[in-house]
Design a protein around this nucleic acid. Structure first.
Lengths: 232, 232
DNA sequence: CGACGCTTTGAGCCTGGTCAATACGTGTGG
DNA sequence: CCACACGTATTGACCAGGCTCAAAGCGTCG
C-alpha cells in the first residue's frame, strides 16, 4: 500500500480528493475565497503561491495559443485540487465557470504540512498521477474518437461522476457552455450542438433545458462511446 | 526550493532525468534489460512491479481503443523514466521502437530509497508533474492545431530536445515510423507523409532519408508551428 | 531476386469547420 | 409590462482539410 497512484477518470481533471487525511484538516482552516462565474482563479504566468480546493462550483483549466485557440484540459469540481504540479509559475489558466468557493492553501503551508506528515506527500503525488491519467484518457478521446464518440464519452464520464457523488447518473446539469465543451473535446460549438440534437433525435438523450441532460438509453450510449479503451 | 515541479516539454513524455541525485545512484546498480524493437516493456494491465529508465533506444507509450485505434501519449528517450504514476496496474503500453536498454528498478526498492532520501520523493513528484505538463502541451497540439502545425510542432520539439542533448538541432534522426508520428499527433500515416513532402517542397526541411530530417528554415518553421501557447 | 515493411503519391469522399441567420432566455430600462 | 439587448444555443448551406482506398516506390533482409 505504498503503491504509487494512478487511476481512471475523464472530464474530471483537477484531482478528486477522496480520503485526503491530513490534508483535510489543513484545508479546513484554510481561507475561503469566492469567485464569480468567468472570474479567474489564476492565470498562466502567475506565481504559484497557492493550491486550491474547489468547495462548490466549477472551474475550467485551459491553455491558449497565441491566436486565441483554446484547449480546456480539465474541469475541477467540488473536492478537486487545482494548482498542483506547477513549478514557480502556472502554465495554464483556471477560470470559474459558475460562482465558486475555494479553499486557498499557501504553498509554504503545504510544504510544512508535508514535512510533518509523510503520507501527505504521497497523497499529493497520487493526486498529480491521477490528473495525468485523466489527461491521457482525454488525449485518447480527442486524438482518436469522432465527434459523436467524443460527446458521448464526455456525457458518460459526467454521468459516472454524478453517480460517484451519489447523484442521479441519468439526469444532471452541465455547468459549462457549449463553447467550453467544444474547447475541451477539440470540436466547435456548432458541432457540439448538432451532436446533442442528433442524440436527442435518436432518442438517446433528453434536453429539457440546454444545460440539463437526461440519458435515456445508457446501453446504446455506452456502445456509441466506442471502445472504452481497455480497463472496465 | 521546495517548489513543486512542472515544466515544459513536448513529444518528450517519460520524464527527463536531469539531476536525479540519489536516484542515479540507485539506478546505477539496477539490473539492465534489453528489448528489441517492437518488444514490449510492459502492457496495459500488467502489475506495476518496476519503474524503468531508458538508457539507450526509444520507447513509445500508448493507449488503444477496443477497435484498435491507438493514441501514443509520449515517447521516452534516454534518461526518461517510464512506469511511474501507475497504481497497481499499468494503464497503457510501453513498446520499444528501436533496440533499447533499460534500467529496471523494483517498486519496493524505489520506496525503500524514497524512505531514506526525502528529496527522492520530491523528485518523483516532479517527474510526474513534468509528464503531466508535457501531456497537456500535446493535448493543446492535437486538440487545436492543424495537420501542418502539428507536424511542425513535433519537429521543433524534437529539435529542441536534440539541442538539449548537445546534438545538432537541425539535423536529426527520427526513431519512430510515420505511423507512430500519426498516432502521436492524431493524424493518419498519409497525412504525416504528405505534410513532410509539403515542407520539403516549401524548402523548409530536407529528407535525405525517410528517417533523417534537416531543418532548413527554422524561423519560418517556428512561425508555421503557430502560436507557441504562451511561455517562451 | 523476391518478399516484406515502410513510405509516398493519387483520386475521391466525408466529417467537421466556417460563415451566417435565427431562436431562446434573462435582465434592463423605458 | 413590453421592448430591447446581450449572451448562448440551434440550425442551415457551403466548403475544405484530412481520411479512405488504392497503387506504386524504395530499402532491407533472407
Amino acid at each position: 500500500m505504498h503503491s504509487l497512484s494512478l487511476q481512471t477518470a475523464a472530464p474530471h481533471t483537477g484531482v478528486n480528493a477522496r480520503p485526503m487525511g491530513g490534508l483535510d484538516r489543513t484545508l479546513a482552516q484554510a481561507t475561503l475565497r469566492r469567485v464569480e462565474a468567468k472570474e479567474f482563479v489564476f492565470i498562466e504566468g502567475d506565481p504559484t503561491t497557492h493550491v486550491f480546493r474547489v468547495e462548490t462550483g466549477a472551474v475550467s483549466l485551459y491553455k491558449v495559443l497565441a491566436d486565441g485557440r483554446r484547449q480546456i484540459v480539465g474541469f475541477a469540481y467540488p473536492g478537486d485540487l487545482i494548482g498542483l504540479g506547477a513549478q514557480g509559475a502556472h502554465v495554464m489558466n483556471a477560470q470559474a465557470i459558475k460562482p465558486t468557493r475555494l479553499r486557498c492553501l499557501a504553498m509554504a503551508t503545504l510544504h510544512r504540512a508535508a514535512a510533518e506528515d509523510p503520507a501527505l506527500g504521497l497523497r499529493l503525488y497520487e493526486a498529480v498521477a491521477r490528473d495525468l491519467a485523466a489527461t491521457r484518457d482525454l488525449m485518447l478521446t480527442t486524438g482518436q474518437r469522432s465527434a459523436t464518440e467524443r460527446v458521448v464519452s464526455f456525457l458518460m464520464a459526467f454521468s459516472r461522476r454524478s453517480e460517484r457523488n451519489g447523484q442521479d447518473p441519468c439526469d444532471f446539469e452541465l455547468p459549462m457552455t457549449r463553447a467550453d465543451i467544444g474547447d475541451f473535446l477539440g470540436l466547435t460549438i456548432e458541432t457540439v450542438s448538432r451532436t446533442f440534437t442528433k442524440l436527442k433525435t435518436l432518442g438517446l438523450i433528453e434536453l429539457p433545458q440546454s444545460n440539463r441532460v437526461q440519458l435515456v438509453d445508457l446501453d446504446q450510449l455506452e456502445s456509441l462511446a466506442a471502445g472504452e479503451d481497455d480497463r472496465s
